[in-house]
């Protein structure tokens, strides 16, 4: 009762009921791995995200580990990644014989590639996940283990066939170095990313549970010591990578999450880089916001 009231004051009545229930449920499920209820409520009232307190976040059918400061997977991302997993076509020709390759930049917890690995038929996908943060890569490795996705370079080596994930440490903003690191893995049938897209102006206004807890490097789309780019710095870097021409296979797909109001601008940036892109779509999230730019590369 006392805990409920404290939570209600901190986060509002409807959320308080749900969050208290989820805390109790986490304790009932594994009392050894989570703090006691008083501690949890105190931490939540102090502004810590519930996901960090519980140490886990569901993502589609997966239960992913989360820990500060790696970006917490968002429901918007869950929605489009599930949609992409069922919309992305299998390889042309004899079905299922070629292993498709997916690249995820700014992977964080590796939520996107792990969801793709879970949703696509076993033995048909090899995903490469890139991040510049050691904390993110360590978490991605733990999550791959928790989801029983082997971290390897070749899906065909496994019996029974299974989807695989390779982790790469690289800076998306350093296009030349990234392209060199990717060369042994590519070309890719699919490129996904949920890059940092918050502008410097918006960053100052973020709720404390985001600003005080999650890695600014996973949020800020304007670079330090550079003029404001409208939060688009990483999209320009991804466009530069695509413009090299050897990253995305002919006819490959591109899916980039964007911030509210950025979709048109990002569509223009990647459209120019994917010269002759056959189609560029904008997908909305469940709240009706333009959330993802999806482009299909031209078939040569």
């Amino acid at each position: 009762m006392r805990l409920l009231r404290a939570l209600q004051q901190a986060i509002g009545a409807p959320s308080a009921h749900n969050e208290l229930r989820w805390m109790k449920r986490a304790i009932a499920a594994s009392p050894a791995t989570v703090p006691d209820l008083d501690t949890m409520v105190a931490r939540r009232v102090a502004g810590e995200p519930l996901q960090y307190i519980l140490g886990a976040q569901p993502f589609g059918p997966l239960m992913l580990q989360v820990r500060p400061p790696v970006l917490i997977p968002r429901p918007e991302t869950e929605d489009w990644a599930l949609r992409l997993a069922s919309a992305f076509p299998p390889p042309p020709g004899v079905t299922g014989m070629r292993v498709q390759r997916a690249l995820d930049l700014c992977t964080g917890s590796a939520c996107i590639p792990l969801l793709l690995c879970a949703q696509r038929p076993p033995g048909t996908l090899h995903a490469v996940a890139v991040d510049s943060s050691d904390a993110a890569l360590a978490l991605a490795r733990d999550n791959a283990r928790a989801c029983a996705v082997p971290c390897a370079t070749d899906a065909r080596r496994h019996t029974p066939p299974t989807n695989t994930l390779a982790l790469l440490r690289a800076d998306v903003l350093d296009t030349a170095a990234l392209a060199a690191a990717l060369r042994p893995h590519g070309p890719f049938d699919l490129l996904t990313a949920n890059p940092p897209y918050i502008t410097r102006a918006e960053y100052a206004e973020l709720p404390p549970s985001v600003r005080d807890w999650e890695d600014p490097a996973a949020l800020l789309g304007d670079l330090p010591a550079a003029p404001p780019s409208g939060g688009l710095a990483f999209y320009h870097a991804i466009a530069a990578l695509l413009a090299r021409g050897d990253v995305l296979r002919a006819g490959g797909w591109l899916a980039l999450e964007v911030g509210a109001g950025q979709a048109r601008a990002v569509a223009a940036v990647v459209g120019a880089a994917l010269a002759g892109a056959s189609e560029t779509q904008i997908w909305c999230d469940p709240w009706g916001k333009e959330r993802v730019v999806v482009a299909h590369g031209a078939r040569r």
């Binding site: 989820w22 519930l50 996901q51 917490i72 549970s209 985001v210 911030g259």
Partner: peptide, 10 residues
């Protein structure tokens, strides 16, 4: 704004 701007569970 949703997305990266918000980490509340909805």
């Amino acid at each position: 704004a949703g997305g990266q701007h918000v980490n509340k569970t909805e």
